[in-house]
């Protein structure tokens, strides 16, 4: 078992003919992910990666031809909102958007459109999802994680890799790792993932990696206190970040005294979540 992606995942890659799309589609195929097709308007009927992946003009046609149930988006920010809506309208139930720099008003409109449709969006501005040994959707380096019982959910990309790597060094594997992305408005949030891990029989412990900005970690802390029976371990990046400065991610900014690392750590501790002071310490905490 795992969450969100597994051996039944039938993946369509939106933007499969671009350089990033091609490169990572090959990696996903090599990992054993069931990539059933890709899309690129105007190139329907062609094949990429030595005839392994058929290209379709639209997601709708791809779904009809292949029965795809999951999509991953590799298209530039200006076209990504359209790509998300296209996937949802083609009845894709899990949409993973890697694209960064999508305007925030676009994301507000996209979320409002998506919410009543029952489609789940992961991202944008995220590294994707990895279920070690089974399926990889996105760009998380697959050789840094091994199968196991720790669920990982994170707002960051490479910081997540750091934690997966530290876990692996201690021989600890993960059930699924979900990158939810560093934007202020995203799809799936911490609470959604915590609930999925709580319900997943393969997951025994959960690691939650947050960062400064917004109040999602505080809300997650309340959820953990009230609903989680499985132990959760936390890490918050940005203790030394100055207020008012956007630390790379569009969502990582301390504004009007809100969203500081200190407040988040306090909230998590109050919910019984131990918070590590660096990524390697998380692995040590879990090993105990």
């Amino acid at each position: 078992m795992s969450i969100l992606i597994n051996k039944d995942t039938r993946l369509v890659v939106q933007g499969v003919t671009g350089s990033q799309g091609l490169f990572h589609t090959k990696r996903m195929l090599d990992y054993g992910t069931n990539v059933v097709g890709g899309t690129r308007p105007g190139k329907g009927g062609e094949w990429v990666l030595d005839g392994k992946v058929p290209v379709f003009d639209t997601v709708k046609i791809a779904v009809q031809a292949t029965g795809a149930n999951t999509s991953v988006i590799f298209v530039p920010a200006a076209y990504a909102p359209d790509a998300i809506l296209e996937a949802a309208d083609a009845d894709i139930k899990l949409i993973i958007c890697l694209t960064e720099h999508i305007p925030v008003q676009d994301m507000m409109r996209v979320r409002k459109y998506l919410d009543p449709m029952g489609a789940r969006l992961v991202g944008p501005n995220c590294p994707g999802i990895l279920t070690p040994g089974v399926s990889s959707v996105g760009i998380i380096p697959s050789n840094i994680a091994i199968p196991g019982n720790v669920g990982v959910v994170s707002r960051s990309g490479t910081l997540t890799y750091e934690v997966l790597y530290a876990l692996k060094e201690l021989g600890i594997g993960s059930s699924t790792c979900v990158g939810i992305g560093g934007d202020p408005i995203n799809g799936t949030n911490f609470i959604d993932c915590l609930q999925l891990f709580e319900d997943d029989p393969q997951t025994d412990k959960v690691v939650m990696i947050g960062e400064i900005g917004g109040t999602d970690e505080e809300k997650a802390a309340t959820f953990i206190r009230e609903n989680m029976t499985k132990p959760v371990f936390g890490f918050i990046a940005g203790k030394t970040a100055p207020p008012g400065k956007r630390m790379g991610h569009a969502g990582a900014i301390v504004e009007g005294g809100e969203g500081t690392a200190e407040e988040k750590i306090k909230a998590l501790n109050a919910a019984g979540v131990p918070v590590a002071s660096n990524p390697e310490e998380i692995a040590e905490m879990i090993a105990k």
Binding site: G157, T158, L159, T160, K239, M247, N278
Partner: peptide
């Protein structure tokens, strides 16, 4: 990576150092 960059600043602080930049 932004998250790792912040975590790197934080760990320098933890060991008594001080980052010059993000």
């Amino acid at each position: 990576g932004a998250g790792l960059a912040m975590a790197t600043m934080d760990i320098l602080d933890q060991y008594g150092g001080s980052p010059a930049n993000f």
